[in-house]
């Protein structure tokens, strides 16, 4: 049993890990075909896993309704929403446009799904304001630096700020746009590159740990 549950998955992980890594250095048609086959298999597994996810979703919400837990009414919307999309999809044969006219599925997709997704995305604007407010409360020297940088950027990007800068500090002959450009091109890029290099090294080491079977927690069993 250990052989099936532990050794075979580890061997598969090693073989396919090394092959995928090697395909980066082998510019052969065979390595290209191999990657294509792997992608196809991933899509096939994802397709079956999606069914599993759907069952999990229904099971979880069905239990909430059955047990009448707090907010069970929201769970009803999962089923209602599912039917609202699936029934028109079946009747429209999965087609969104019939010539120039929208089918039931197309109408639902455009006027319900897209509208709701857009609404969620637009909520971000409000959250950015509240986050900015929280970030601008200077409680530490680091928060002070953050505030100073953000303040300069806001002044530099808003026309009113640019006018104020010109009126008050125009005599210095240093444009606010130059300062903003320097901030974005020097300290910001330096910080980002530092993080990216750390991430790249961490990613490589994690990949090696998985390929060589040192990291096994994702398998869920020892």
């Amino acid at each position: 049993m250990t052989f099936i549950k532990k050794h075979i998955p580890l061997a598969l992980c090693f073989i396919f890990g090394v092959l995928t890594l090697g395909s980066y250095y082998v510019p052969n048609k065979a390595s290209e075909n191999y990657l294509e086959v792997m992608n196809k298999w991933e899509n096939i597994v994802a397709g079956f896993a999606f069914l599993l996810g759907l069952f999990s979703l229904f099971f979880s919400h069905y239990n909430k309704i059955r047990r009448k837990v707090d907010g069970w009414g929201y769970s009803l919307f999962v089923f209602v929403g599912f039917l609202i999309m699936v029934i028109p999809a079946i009747t429209s044969k999965g087609i969104q446009m019939d010539g120039a006219t929208l089918t039931g599925l197309g109408w639902n997709y455009r006027f319900l799904f897209n509208a709701l997704s857009g609404t969620m995305f637009s909520v971000l604007a409000f959250y950015i304001v509240s986050t900015a407010y929280r970030a601008f409360r200077i409680k530490s020297p680091q928060a002070g630096v953050l505030f100073a940088a953000a303040f300069i950027l806001i002044v530099g990007k808003v026309p009113l700020g640019q006018i104020m800068w010109e009126k008050t500090l125009g005599w210095t002959h240093v444009g606010i746009s130059q300062i903003v450009q320097w901030l974005m091109e020097v300290p910001v890029v330096a910080g980002r590159r530092g993080i990216m290099m750390g991430l790249a090294i961490g990613g490589i080491v994690t990949g090696l740990k998985i390929i060589f079977g040192i990291e096994r927690q994702y398998m869920g069993k020892d």
């Binding site: 994802a46 896993a49 999606f50 996810g53 759907l54 927690q217 869920g220």
Partner: peptide, 17 residues
């Protein structure tokens, strides 16, 4: 809560273990 069903399956095993 999961976004990807495959990740959910793996996480189930991880948490159970």
């Amino acid at each position: 809560p999961h976004f990807d069903p495959i990740v959910m399956t793996v996480c189930k095993e991880v948490v159970k273990q």
